[in-house]
Design a protein around this nucleic acid. Structure first.
Lengths: 282, 282
DNA sequence: ACTTGACTCTCTCATTATGTGAGAGTTCAT
DNA sequence: ATGAACTCTCACATAATGAGAGAGTCAAGT
C-alpha cells in the first residue's frame, strides 16, 4: 500500500494527475479511506497505470484511453481507433509542416525586408454568396468604376439589406480592353425584389459558388493603386506554391464618396490550389 | 461601419472570436456604443485583422500575435520570435512523427497478436535516487534473492522511511555466475543512519544517477518468470530502434512473504537511447 | 499523550481559443 | 408600434494539468 506521494514517485505520474484519473474514473486507488479520503495504491496497479501512460503517449485523449483500457473491445474496434489516430497524426504532420514552411517564408521575408509586411494575405474558405449583379463585357475598366458608383447609390436606396459590392472577373488573363466581368452587391439569399438602375437595366440575382481556398488581401486606397495589391498577392502565392484556379473577385468593403476615394477598402480574392509537388513517398 | 455580424461575415472570423479579441485587447472595434455596448467595425480595420489571422495561422498564440501586431518591435526581436517558433515546430514534428511510428507499431501488433498486450513498456525520465545498498559479486543470482529477503526484514525495522527495493546490474552481459550487482533500498536523501544486517555487513548510502530515458516494464509474479519481462522489454526496444546504454535496474515494488512470492511486483528498467538513424537532412 | 513536520484532503482558479446557451436589450424596416 | 433579426453580457464547457489556500492526517520522536 502506497500513499499517493510514494506512488507518484514510483510511477512518475504527478499527484495531480493521479487524483484527476481517480476523479474521472480512469484509474482509482486500490483503497480509499472512507473517513479521511486518503488514497492508497498497490504495486500491482502499476501495470495498468503503465498501459495508461503508454497509450496516452500515443497522443490519445484520456477518454479514448479509458475506452481502450476498461472495456474488452473487439479487435476490430481497437484497430479502428488506431487507424483513426494514425490518419489524424498524418494530417497533423502535414499541417505543421506547412506551418513550418510558412514560418520559414516569413523569416526570409524579415531577413530581406527588415520588417513585417503591412498587410497580410490570408487563405480562407468562403461560403456561397447570393448577389444581385450585372455582367457585361466592357471596353475599359474605367467604366466599371463608374458603374460601381451609380449602382452603389441605387442599391443603397432600393435594397438596404445589400452588403458589400463585389466584382467577378471572368477573363483568365488580365486585359484592359473588352474584359468580361460581373458587378454586383451581396444580398441575403432570401432577397427577391428587382432592382433597376437609372439607365433601365435590372440587376439579376444569382449565387456565387463557395470557394474552398480563397487567397485574400485587403487594400486601402483608391483604385489606381490596386494593382499593387494584386502583385503583392501574386508574389505571395508564387512563393508558397499556390496557383490560381478560378475567377478573381474584388470585394468593395468600403466605398468612399466621389471625393474620398482614398478611403476605399477593397479586398482582392483569388481562388487557389496547391501546386502538387513532385511526388515523393505516399 | 459594420455591426459585428456583418464584419464577421466579411472577415470570416467568428463573432465569438471577434468579441474575444476585443476582450483581450488584441483587436478592438473602431467604435463601441457606450450605452448599448454594440461593437461597430470599419472596413479599414480589415488589414489588421488579416495580419492577426495570418500570424495566428502560423500557430502563434494570441499573446504572441498581440506582441507582433501592437508594438514596434526591433527586427531582431521579431526574428527571434520566429526562430523560436521555427524550432518549436521542428521539435513538434519530430515528436508527432515518433508518435505516428509508435501507433503504426501498435497497429502491427494488433494485426498479428489480435489484441493489446497485457503490460506496456513505458519510457520515463527518472530523477536521482538515494539508496542504501550493498554491492557484491556473487556466484549465483539465487543468493541475491536471499539477500533481498533478509535485507527486506532488517530494513523494514531499522529504516522505516525506506521505500522500494532496488537492484542495479553492473554486468553488461548477462551471466548467471559471478555477476556484479548492487542491492539496496530507496531512502530520502536526508537519510543518515547506519543499517546493519544480521551477518554484520552494513548498508552504505549513495546516489543512483538520474536517467533521461528509462524504459520500464512492470512484472507481476515470482522471480522465475521475470525473464519473460526482460525479453518482452528487449523486443519492444529493438522494434522501436532503442538501444540499452547503461546499467539495468530492477525495482522491487512489492515483496511478498516467503510463501506469497506470486504477489511480487517487479519493475525492470533499462536506460536507453535512440539508435541514430542514417542521417537524412539536417 | 503531545508536538512537529511532512503529507494529504477538497475546493477554487488558471491555462488556450473557441463554442454554446440563457435572458435581456437594440436596431430597423414595415 | 410591432416583430424579426440582431447584439449584449455572463456563465459554463472543452483537455489535462498546475498552483495555492486552508484544514485535516500520519508517523516519529519526545
Amino acid at each position: 500500500m502506497f500513499k499517493i506521494g510514494d506512488f507518484s514517485r514510483i510511477s512518475q505520474v504527478s499527484i495531480r494527475s493521479l487524483r484527476h484519473y481517480d476523479e474521472i474514473g480512469l484509474f482509482k486507488p486500490a483503497y480509499t479511506d472512507p473517513f479521511t479520503g486518503y488514497r492508497y495504491y498497490t504495486a500491482d496497479q502499476l501495470p495498468r497505470l503503465n498501459r495508461i501512460v503508454a497509450l496516452k503517449s500515443l497522443g490519445l485523449s484520456l477518454d479514448e484511453v479509458a475506452l481502450l483500457v476498461n472495456d474488452d473491445l473487439s479487435v476490430e474496434v481497437i484497430r479502428g481507433m488506431f487507424k483513426l489516430r494514425q490518419s489524424q497524426l498524418r494530417r497533423h504532420i502535414l499541417e505543421v509542416e506547412s506551418q513550418l514552411k510558412a514560418v520559414e517564408m516569413r523569416l526570409k521575408q524579415i531577413e530581406t525586408e527588415g520588417t513585417l509586411p503591412e498587410t497580410e494575405p490570408v487563405i480562407k474558405r468562403l461560403p456561397e454568396q447570393s448577389i444581385i449583379s450585372i455582367r457585361e463585357i466592357a471596353p475599359t475598366l474605367r467604366s466599371m468604376g463608374d458603374l460601381l458608383m451609380s449602382m452603389h447609390t441605387v442599391v443603397r436606396h432600393q435594397a438596404k439589406e445589400a452588403g458589400y459590392g463585389v466584382a467577378v472577373f471572368y477573363d483568365w488573363y488580365y486585359d484592359d480592353i473588352d474584359s468580361d466581368w460581373e458587378l454586383g452587391f451581396a444580398v441575403p439569399e432570401t432577397f427577391d425584389r428587382t432592382v433597376r438602375l437609372e439607365d433601365g437595366r435590372t440587376l439579376t440575382m444569382h449565387v456565387l459558388p463557395a470557394v474552398e481556398q480563397m487567397a485574400c488581401v485587403t487594400y486601402e486606397g483608391n483604385y489606381f493603386g490596386l494593382s499593387q495589391g494584386y502583385s503583392q498577392l501574386g508574389v505571395w502565392l508564387d512563393e508558397r506554391g499556390y496557383r490560381i484556379c478560378g475567377e478573381a473577385r474584388e470585394l468593395f468593403l468600403h466605398i468612399g464618396d466621389a471625393d474620398h476615394q482614398d478611403e476605399n477598402v477593397t479586398e482582392i480574392q483569388f481562388p487557389v490550389e496547391q501546386i502538387p509537388t513532385t511526388p515523393q513517398g505516399e
